[in-house]
């Protein structure tokens, strides 16, 4: 079969709604796009542990501490199975971490903002995980089997993350004046960055067209973003918080909430590495990866020593 025929057959399978599995033939572009996306998703889960970790030691109640700890642990677990899904393309986790450290691989820009108050634990769960669910519910339908299956599992846990975040912010919004102020301030800071999580407008998104054709994405950035806005605006109003956008208005005809234009200069600036925490997040990851080197060396040496010993026993 020629390359062209294979490509046509591949597209037929996609169009018929079949799942593509690791050993199936696939075009290089499909492979590259998915590897880039899944490894970026894995790195995002791992880097995302840092802003929440910033409040883990200061969580204000036993319950809050347990929930936050469990949430961060879930994220580490998501990272693990996403790395495994990305490894189906023949690149192992150690190489992916090198790519993260060299800047070749990215992670979600949202984690380049600082978690300044306890209310941010609410906003991150409510808005960041809320946006992630909208995106991941769509990805659970994607054409690549391992990614789609990982997403189904992850979505279940993200639902719990989103609810716990909303609970934190709702409690604060109905709390003391200081708590209310923290809750509103937190929404003010996280609102626009969370809208940017869906990526540029469809017209400016370099990967959208192919991704839609290959059913890696089945809905566009703008459609997903609008779904998130409609959901979140209602939730904010329900607990008496104000969306920080004076042009926010409800369009009765379209039945959607409309917002001001998003500041895409800010988005690209953070993507390029100039956000408030880009340097901090990456250098933290590098530092502890390096500090763990002797442990990994020890574990490897131990395994080798054990094998030598068991071989010696056998040959005796």
């Amino acid at each position: 079969m020629t390359e062209e025929e294979k490509t046509a057959q591949f597209q037929q399978r996609i169009d018929a709604g079949e799942k593509i599995e690791p050993l199936d033939w696939m075009p290089d572009g499909y492979k590259q796009t998915l590897f880039r996306q899944i490894s970026q998703h894995a790195h995002s889960e791992i880097i995302g542990m840092q802003p929440e970790g910033n409040w883990l030691l200061r969580a204000p109640s036993l319950r809050a501490k347990k929930i936050l700890m469990a949430k961060i642990q879930d994220e580490a677990g998501h990272g693990l199975y996403l790395y495994s899904a990305a490894e189906t393309f023949g690149i192992d986790r150690a190489e992916m971490i090198d790519m993260l450290h060299s800047g070749q691989a990215k992670y979600s820009s949202i984690f380049n903002y600082p978690a300044l108050t306890w209310a941010d634990m609410g906003a991150i769960g409510w808005l960041v995980d809320g946006a992630a669910i909208v995106n991941q519910t769509m990805l659970a339908k994607c054409s690549y089997g391992p990614y789609s299956r990982a997403m189904v599992r992850i979505c279940k846990e993200e639902g719990f993350h989103q609810r716990q975040g909303y609970e934190i912010i709702a409690k604060m919004a109905s709390g003391t004046p200081a708590q209310k102020e923290m809750a509103q301030d937190s929404l003010n800071r996280w609102w626009e960055p969370s809208l940017m999580m869906f990526g540029p407008h469809d017209a400016d998104s370099p990967h959208t067209q192919n991704s839609m054709k290959w059913k890696i994405k089945v809905e566009s950035n703008d459609t997903l973003r609008q779904r998130f806005i409609d959901r979140t605006v209602e939730q904010a109003h329900h607990i008496g918080l104000t969306i920080p956008d004076k042009n926010l208005k409800y369009n009765k005809e379209t039945m959607h909430w409309e917002i001001s234009p998003i500041n895409w200069d800010e988005f690209w600036n953070v993507v390029k590495g100039n956000g408030p925490c880009n340097h901090q997040r990456l250098s933290h990851h590098k530092k502890y990866h390096q500090e763990g080197q002797w442990v990994r060396d020890c574990a490897r040496a131990f395994e080798v020593n054990q094998m030598k010993e068991s071989n010696a026993v056998k040959s005796n």
């Binding site: 970790g53 642990q73 763990g292």
Partner: peptide
């Protein structure tokens, strides 16, 4: 143990340490 969050030598170890902290 919670201080080890995101500082473990392996991702698996990060998970184990947070599990024990829990």
């Amino acid at each position: 143990l919670a201080e080890w969050n995101s500082c473990g030598p392996y991702l698996e170890e990060d998970i184990a340490l947070s599990n024990m902290a829990l």
